[in-house]
Each structure stands twice: as C-alpha cells, then as structure tokens.
Computed example of a mutant assay.
Amino acid sequence: MSNTAHHDEMPILDLDLSNTKPFEASRFLDSPETIAAFLAEAMKANDAQVLMHAMGEVAKARGVNQFAQDAGVNRESLYKTLKGGDKTRFATVQKLMLALGVELTVRPLDKHLA
C-alpha cells in the first residue's frame, strides 16, 4: 500500500479566518533594497492599480506625510494619486518613484515572455 495520498482523498479543512488580518506589506518595507524589490514585483503585474497599491504600502512604511513632502505634493493629493490607477500620469509616477529613492528601468523581456 502506498503512503502517497491523492488530492481526492485529502481532507478539506474548515478554517475560520474571520479573525485574521490582511497582510500589510508596509511592516516589512524597511530598506531601499526591499522597497525596490517590492515595487519591481508590483510592476510585473502590468496593472496600474497593483503598482499604486504597492506605492501606498511603501507610503505607509515611510510615513505618508514624509513621502508626500519628499514627492512635493500634499497628503490629500498623494492619496488621490495612489487611488488613481490607470488615470495616474507617468510624470506623477516618476515623481513618486524618485521620492522613494528608486528608478524605473528598462530591460529586454525574456524570449519566452515576448
């Protein structure tokens, strides 16, 4: 008899997740390298909303007031920008990236992705 279980035979766990909290990446974004890696992963989604959400997490990690000041915008404007997604101008994204101390770079796609 084999000790390997088939997926049909595996029990379904009935987990109560009502008391769990959503993962907050901002708690772990504690260095420029980590921030850069986090934003690079968000960029891979090719979705402006994902990038803006990631920038929001970085803003929380850095302190929203400080981030807004570094970017040269007021706090309310920063919040609107981070909620903007597809409507956010490239110049604004670039300004926010520079305020975070990171830059957008270009590299060729892997051949199997092109």
Rank of each mutant, 00 (worst) to 15 (best):
K60A: 04
M55L: 15
Q94I: 11
L98E: 13
G85E: 03
L17C: 01
G72M: 06
P22D: 01
F28E: 13
N19Y: 03
L98I: 12
T81L: 07
D86Y: 05
L96T: 06
T92N: 02
L29K: 07
P11T: 06
R89Y: 12
N19I: 08
H53W: 15
M55W: 04
Q66V: 04
F28H: 15
Q49I: 12
D86M: 14
K95Q: 11
K83N: 13
A48C: 02
L51F: 09
A68N: 01
K80F: 02
E24R: 13
D16S: 10
A37S: 11
K95N: 08
K60Y: 03
A40N: 15
M1G: 14
T81G: 06
G84P: 05
P32D: 12
A54L: 06
A25C: 03
L17M: 13
S31E: 12
A59D: 07
L100G: 12
N3K: 00
T88M: 09
A54F: 11
P32Q: 10
A25H: 06
G63D: 04
V50T: 15
K44H: 11
L13H: 04
T20H: 05
T34C: 04
D30C: 03
N46R: 15
L15D: 08
N19T: 15
S18P: 04
S77Q: 15
G101F: 06
Q94A: 14
F67V: 00
L39Q: 10
S26F: 08
S77E: 13
A114D: 13
F67M: 07
R27W: 03
L82A: 07
M43W: 13
L98F: 08
D14R: 14
T4G: 05
P32I: 03
A45K: 04
R107C: 02
D14T: 14
A114P: 00
A42L: 05
G63T: 02
K111Y: 04
T92F: 00
S26T: 03
D110R: 14
F28T: 08
E9T: 06
A25G: 04
L100A: 02
H112L: 04
E57W: 00
L109T: 14
A71D: 09
L104T: 12
D47T: 07
Y79T: 06
I35E: 00
L109E: 15
G85H: 07
K21I: 07
G56M: 05
G63V: 04
M97K: 00
A40C: 07
A59R: 02
M52E: 06
L109F: 13
A61W: 01
F38H: 09
N3A: 02
L17K: 09
I35N: 07
L104K: 07
L29P: 02
S77H: 14
K95H: 08
D8M: 01
K44I: 01
G85M: 07
P32M: 11
N74Y: 10
N19M: 09
F90Q: 05
L104I: 09
E103W: 12
L17E: 13
